[in-house]
Amino acid sequence: MRLSIDTTDRLAVTDVTARVADAVPSDVERGVCTVFVPHTTAGVVVNEAESGLLDDVEAALARLVPDDDYAHDAIDDNADAHLRALLLGSSVSVPVADGSLDLGTWQSVLFVECDGPRTRSIDVRVAPTIA
């Protein structure tokens, strides 16, 4: 299933857990849910969705990869976004149990925009497994 996400800032973290969970078929007793971001300037991670931490993630990415003068900027002026997304990764896998995401107590699926604002998509695929 492909989900659409609208972002409003250049660098932003969005909790997409509920939307991903809604895409998991209720009849899957055990399986794996893969969330994939088909963009080179955005990523997806599993972490806590506490608002202060989300702000910290944005600040840390900005510090780790500053908006400097990179070679790729001559083409698109977004090299920092590519480099930030490279650090994050383009997919996560989450176990499914009894038709639900089997996340830890504080875990959430977070979409990270590095080159917004944009309309983005994420792909959610669930593969049932045999116990």
Results as ranks from 00 to 15, higher is better:
74 A>S: 14
78 N>R: 07
116 G>T: 04
73 D>H: 04
95 P>F: 01
88 L>V: 09
81 A>E: 08
65 V>R: 11
111 F>Y: 15
79 A>I: 02
65 V>H: 07
109 V>G: 04
70 Y>F: 12
80 D>Y: 03
66 P>H: 12
67 D>E: 15
114 C>G: 06
107 Q>S: 08
117 P>Y: 06
85 A>Y: 01
72 H>Y: 15
101 L>M: 11
118 R>H: 11
96 V>H: 06
86 L>W: 09
101 L>F: 04
65 V>S: 05
74 A>P: 10
72 H>N: 14
69 D>C: 04
66 P>K: 12
73 D>I: 05
97 A>D: 10
89 G>K: 11
113 E>G: 10
85 A>E: 06
69 D>H: 12
73 D>L: 09
108 S>N: 12
109 V>L: 05
96 V>D: 00
115 D>Q: 08
75 I>R: 13
110 L>M: 11
110 L>S: 10
80 D>S: 15
91 S>D: 09
105 T>M: 06
65 V>E: 01
85 A>V: 02
78 N>Q: 09
70 Y>T: 03
81 A>H: 03
69 D>A: 12
92 V>L: 02
109 V>W: 01
76 D>Y: 07
112 V>H: 12
101 L>I: 03
91 S>R: 15
103 L>Q: 01
73 D>R: 02
87 L>S: 08
91 S>E: 11
76 D>F: 07
82 H>P: 09
103 L>K: 00
79 A>Y: 02
108 S>W: 00
114 C>R: 05
88 L>G: 08
104 G>V: 03
104 G>H: 06
117 P>M: 09
111 F>I: 07
96 V>N: 04
84 R>V: 01
92 V>R: 04
80 D>K: 09
100 S>T: 12
115 D>F: 02
115 D>Y: 02
104 G>L: 06
114 C>T: 11
106 W>H: 06
117 P>G: 10
104 G>W: 06
94 V>F: 05
80 D>H: 13
77 D>Q: 12
72 H>R: 13
116 G>K: 14
116 G>E: 07
105 T>A: 14
115 D>L: 06
113 E>V: 09
86 L>H: 15
79 A>L: 02
119 T>N: 13
86 L>F: 10
118 R>C: 01
105 T>C: 02
75 I>A: 13
100 S>R: 15
107 Q>T: 04
